[in-house]
Structures are given as structure tokens and as C-alpha cells.
Lab assay of single mutants.
Amino acid sequence: DETGKFLVLALYDYQEKSPREVTMKKGDILTLLNSTNKDWWKVEVNGRQGFVPAAYVKFL
């Protein structure tokens, strides 16, 4: 149950560059965990948590 969690859509592919980031593919649906930083949002994708560039995702 994803109640209270926001979902975001990956607009572009992103390859993680550090262990704190996660890789996503364009079209992936991600669970948004934290968006307090304007540049990097914490998400969960494929069972992994990490950061992606905020400009690469949008709210569903």
C-alpha cells in the first residue's frame, strides 16, 4: 500500500555515479521518499533507495 507516498515519473535515463544514487530508465515509476533538496530527490526504484536529479523526474 503506497498511501501517503508520491510517485514520480523518470523523464530521462540516469546512471548512478555514486553509491548514494540509483539508476533509473526513462518511463520508470519511482516512489518519492524525500524532495526537500531542490536538486536531488531521494527515491525508491526496483527495491533500492537513493538519489536522482530532481530535474529528471516529474510528479504523476
Rank of each mutant, 00 (worst) to 15 (best):
D1F: 10
D1P: 15
D1I: 14
D1R: 01
E2P: 13
E2L: 14
T3V: 15
T3M: 11
G4L: 11
K5H: 15
K5D: 08
F6G: 13
F6V: 15
F6E: 12
L7E: 07
L7T: 09
L7Y: 15
V8S: 03
L9K: 09
L9P: 00
L11C: 07
L11A: 07
L11K: 07
Y12W: 12
Y12F: 15
D13N: 09
Y14L: 01
Y14H: 05
Y14I: 01
Q15I: 14
Q15A: 12
Q15P: 06
E16M: 12
E16K: 15
K17F: 05
K17P: 04
K17I: 07
K17N: 12
S18D: 14
S18V: 05
P19K: 09
P19A: 10
R20P: 06
R20L: 13
R20N: 14
E21K: 04
E21M: 04
E21G: 11
E21D: 06
E21L: 05
V22C: 06
T23C: 05
T23E: 04
T23F: 03
T23R: 05
T23P: 07
M24Q: 02
M24D: 00
K25M: 11
K25R: 13
K25G: 05
K26A: 13
G27S: 03
G27V: 01
G27R: 02
D28R: 02
D28H: 04
D28P: 00
I29L: 10
I29H: 06
I29M: 07
L30Y: 09
T31V: 15
T31L: 14
T31G: 06
T31I: 14
L32W: 03
L32K: 01
L33K: 05
L33A: 02
L33D: 01
L33G: 01
N34C: 09
N34K: 07
N34Q: 09
N34L: 08
S35N: 12
T36F: 10
T36C: 10
N37D: 12
K38V: 11
K38H: 11
K38L: 08
D39T: 14
D39I: 14
W40E: 04
W40T: 02
W40P: 00
W40M: 06
W41P: 03
W41K: 02
K42F: 15
K42Y: 15
K42Q: 11
K42H: 12
V43F: 01
V43M: 02
V45M: 13
V45G: 07
G47H: 06
G47R: 05
R48L: 08
R48C: 05
R48D: 04
R48P: 01
Q49Y: 08
G50E: 01
F51W: 13
F51K: 03
F51D: 04
V52F: 00
V52I: 10
V52G: 00
V52R: 00
P53D: 01
P53M: 03
P53F: 02
A54Y: 03
A54E: 03
A54K: 07
Y56R: 05
Y56T: 08
Y56C: 08
V57C: 09
V57R: 00
V57S: 01
K58A: 14
K58Y: 11
K58G: 12
F59I: 15
L60Y: 12
L60A: 08
